[in-house]
Amino acid sequence: MKKCSMAALLLLSACSHSTTTPVASDKCDFATDYQVAFTRLDETLQQIAHGSGCFIEADLKQVGALTPNPVTGHMSAVQAVKMAVAGTGLTAQHSKLNTIQVTQP
């Protein structure tokens, strides 16, 4: 009798289906706490990238030595990068999955 119950349970679980649709998760959109106050933009971007898992594209030869703004608070990696580059003349765009591009206009 126990074998029949186990077989019925396996059949029922095999027939059930999930009604949720898988959603791609973007590491750049997850919020976390930041306390970043480096004197160079390359260090700030590296810290945000390592903490979030979000890839940040930037030409560090051109922008790495710029002085970023401190990044403090609970926010996404996108918001953190935008806070870091605010007022520097650089732009931060999030147009690819798990990636932020920092560019000069």
Rank of each mutant, 00 (worst) to 15 (best):
Q47A: 15
T19N: 14
S52W: 08
L12C: 13
V36Q: 06
E43K: 10
T99I: 06
S52R: 09
S18A: 14
S16E: 14
K61F: 06
M75Y: 06
P68Q: 03
M75A: 05
S52P: 13
A92K: 01
T67Y: 02
A84G: 08
V71S: 03
F38K: 08
L60R: 04
E57R: 13
L11I: 15
H94E: 01
H74T: 00
G73H: 02
Q93S: 07
A65N: 00
I48P: 07
L45K: 12
V36S: 04
T44A: 04
L66N: 04
A31P: 05
Q79T: 14
T103I: 09
H50G: 13
Q47S: 14
T19R: 10
T88H: 01
D26I: 04
F55D: 12
T21I: 12
A77K: 04
K82M: 14
I56V: 12
H17I: 14
N69D: 03
C28L: 05
T91D: 10
D42W: 01
G73I: 01
P70W: 04
D33N: 02
L45V: 07
L60D: 02
S18E: 09
G73A: 00
G53H: 13
G73F: 00
A37E: 08
M83N: 14
K96M: 00
M83P: 10
A92G: 04
D33E: 03
H94Y: 01
V71M: 03
K27V: 10
T21H: 04
Q46K: 11
A77W: 05
L66M: 06
G73C: 00
L12V: 08
P70R: 05
K27P: 08
T32D: 08
Q47P: 12
H17Y: 15
S13Y: 08
V102T: 10
A24K: 07
I56R: 09
C54G: 12
F38L: 04
H17A: 15
F38Q: 08
A14P: 12
P70F: 03
Y34K: 02
A92R: 01
N98Y: 01
G53D: 12
A84S: 10
K27E: 11
V23Q: 12
A84T: 08
P22I: 03
G73R: 00
R40K: 07
G89D: 02
L10T: 14
C15Q: 15
Q62Y: 09
C54Q: 11
S25H: 11
V23I: 13
S13I: 11
P70Y: 03
A84M: 08
S13W: 08
A31N: 07
H50I: 15
F38P: 04
S13D: 10
T103V: 09
E43N: 11
V23M: 12
F38E: 10
T19K: 11
L90I: 07
D26Q: 09
L11S: 15
A58C: 12
D59C: 07
L10H: 13
Q93I: 05
A80I: 06
Q35K: 06
L60K: 04
L10C: 14
F38Y: 08
L60G: 04
L90D: 09
A86N: 06
T21Y: 03
G89I: 00
V71D: 00
E57I: 12
